[in-house]
Simulated assay, not measured.
Amino acid sequence: GDLLAEEGGDALYRLEVEVRPKALVVDHSFRFFHGQNDFLKKRILVDAAASEPGGGWRTPPGGAPAGRQPRHAWCSDSSVIAQGSGHGQSDPGVEEVALKCRVGAAGTDRTFLVVVYEDKACARVFEVWRVSVHAVHRMDIQGLVGQTEREGCSLTLRSAEGPKRVTAASSHPLELSVDREGAIEVGPSLTEVPIRYTPMQPGRRDILVHFVEEGAPPGAAPVSAWLLVCRAKAPVVSKRYDIRIRAGRPASKKVLYTNPYSINRIFRLRTDKPSLLSFRDASQQLEVAPRATQSISLKFAPHPKGGVTEDIRVFVNDEEDKNEECLLITVEYV
């Protein structure tokens, strides 16, 4: 820049400034998977009492001033809304940064930076975040806790790059998995892939399923990605049992079950807390003659603490893994 004289406009001297931008130090990386052609709305919590993290280069000489103001956010992508929303609703010691952005078509993604400042003037940096948003296909599934849902549960795949063999990977494989063994052949035409959903807890859970080409290197983009928004309801409890067990020791108990049918039946057994309860029969099956009563042998794992009560559900399902009865066992550890 030039410094000019007031009269005549002659240059008194010239100052040349060489600027060498440096990459920002990223404190946290966030990765979100969201349904295509929708709006992503997220609130990220920030500890309101925290001081500047790690990087001494962010601390001004003499330390941070007292009486800190609410934090403010800036985003490198002008089409993304990023703003500090003050204190959280549940905890006054926690602040929130709200993000809102438009998600594109499935298979696309966008990455941007969010800088959180200590003051309204955006003079002191608190943290820098890298946010990645991946657009995926979305499907809603409803089910009953303890039973397997197959009807209406299928995904459609297509490979625009020619025939491929893909394998599925689920973020929650114990609850949702592909109902087919081995690799799946996909091509330019639509391929329907059946899935099975077996929720173990009531409520909502977002499950991500990736279909990756066989032999692809680690980190390769999936051929197709699905976000399954799953909602599960608890079944009606048909029988209740109260049991007292000494803490720190394993225990075995039996409960009786009567076959209400006039034919021989084989029932499948499940529990919503396998870490606390298992079945003596490794096959987790119960064969009962017509109108007969059979005992279900239960094995309780040792619980480290006494004075604790746990509610454990036992699901008695039919051959298709549909729920017949739900037994609620209340265990008191003494």
Score class of each variant (00 low, 15 high):
D10K: 12
L12T: 03
S29T: 15
R31M: 12
Q36N: 12
D38T: 14
F39A: 14
K42L: 08
I44Y: 06
R58T: 14
P60Y: 10
G62A: 04
A66T: 04
G67R: 03
P70K: 11
H72G: 04
W74C: 00
C75G: 11
S78I: 05
I81E: 10
G88V: 13
D91L: 15
E96G: 09
L99I: 08
G104P: 08
A105K: 04
G107C: 07
R110Y: 03
T111S: 14
V115S: 09
V115H: 11
A121E: 13
R124F: 06
F126Q: 12
V128Q: 07
R130I: 03
R130A: 14
V131G: 04
V131F: 09
H137R: 15
R138E: 15
Q142D: 13
Q142S: 15
V145K: 11
R150C: 11
R150Q: 13
L155T: 02
V166F: 00
T167Y: 04
A169Q: 15
L174A: 07
V178E: 00
R180M: 00
A183L: 00
P188D: 01
L190S: 06
L190N: 03
E192P: 02
V193P: 09
T198A: 15
R205M: 12
H210P: 02
V212H: 05
E213I: 01
E214R: 03
E214H: 03
P222Q: 00
P222H: 06
V229I: 10
V229P: 01
V229N: 09
C230T: 15
A232M: 04
P235F: 14
K239A: 13
Y241M: 09
I243W: 13
R244S: 12
R244C: 02
I245R: 12
P250Y: 05
N259A: 04
Y261P: 03
S262K: 08
S262I: 10
S262W: 01
N264D: 05
R270V: 02
S278Q: 09
A292C: 01
T293S: 09
S297K: 07
L298C: 10
F300I: 10
P304Q: 00
G306S: 07
E310T: 06
V314G: 05
F315G: 04
F315Y: 11
N317F: 01
D318Q: 05
E320Y: 02
D321Q: 14
D321A: 13
E325Y: 11
E325T: 04
L327S: 02
L327C: 07
